[in-house]
Each structure stands twice: as structure tokens, then as C-alpha cells.
């Protein structure tokens, strides 16, 4: 197990990515929260208008990408913490690869779906 499977091959980059993506997600959350708090009784049109604006589309896609990056660093860390030969013997490497492929796939689907969802909104 080396850094090869980490996102940026560098702990520092991972660390920065995790924090940066966390900031993006926090801001995105704030943005959504304030939108929903300010606007009572929203209908579909308002929602489409809000999420369909160019800036909000970009922001949403950024948030989706941040979720994926943040998730990948975290899940990769959890995997390397717990799926180790110490507990799983020789199977650990295979198990961890499977876990990582699973995580990657899941995150890829999120990203793909998220981009479709937000980017391809009717304008």
C-alpha cells in the first residue's frame, strides 16, 4: 500500500484538498440554508430559477466535486486505517482494492449524476 492510491500522492495536498473542499461545502450549505430560510413556500419554478442561474450551476458543480474529493480523501483514509493485514491477513490488499474501487465508483456516479442534474437543468 503506497500513496499511489491517494488522490494527490501527497499528504499535504490531501490535507489542503480536504480543508478547501470543506470550506466550499460549508459555504454551499450556508447559501442553500439562507435561500430556504428567506424564501417561504417555494414552488418548482422558483427552485429551477435559483439552481438554474449560471453562478448557482457553477457553485453546485463545485460543491459536487468538493463532496467527491472530500469523500475520497476521507474514505481512503478510513480504508487504510482499518483494512489492514493485521485484521484481515493476506486478503487485506484485495479487500482494500475492492473497497477503494467501490468507493471510487460510488463517488464517480455521484459526480456524473450531480453534473447531469445541476449542469443540465433547463435554463
Amino acid at each position: 500500500m503506497t500513496q499511489v492510491t491517494s488522490l494527490a500522492r501527497s499528504g499535504l495536498a490531501d490535507f489542503l484538498i480536504q480543508r478547501l473542499s470543506a470550506v466550499v461545502l460549508a459555504l454551499y450549505t450556508l447559501c442553500l440554508l439562507s435561500f430556504f430560510l428567506v424564501n417561504d413556500g417555494l414552488d418548482h419554478r422558483q427552485l429551477v430559477e435559483f439552481f438554474g442561474s449560471a453562478s448557482m450551476r457553477a457553485f453546485s458543480v463545485l460543491a459536487v466535486l468538493s463532496t467527491a474529493a472530500h469523500g475520497w480523501v476521507g474514505l481512503w483514509t478510513v480504508g487504510t486505517d482499518y483494512i489492514r493485514p493485521h485484521y484481515f491477513g493476506a486478503r487485506a490488499v484485495v479487500l482494500r482494492m475492492a473497497y477503494q474501487v467501490g468507493c471510487a465508483l460510488l463517488l464517480f456516479i455521484y459526480v456524473w449524476w450531480g453534473i447531469r442534474l445541476f449542469w443540465m437543468l433547463p435554463g
Binding site: 500513496q3 501527497s10 499528504g11 499535504l12 490531501d14 483514509t77 487504510t80 486505517d81
Partner: peptide, 10 residues
């Protein structure tokens, strides 16, 4: 030498 994902960042 400490930059990798494990040495410090764990």
C-alpha cells in the same frame, strides 16, 4: 520527508 499522507497527516 514528512509530506506523504501517513507520516504526519494521519
Amino acid at each position: 520527508d514528512l509530506e506523504d499522507p501517513f507520516s504526519v497527516f494521519r
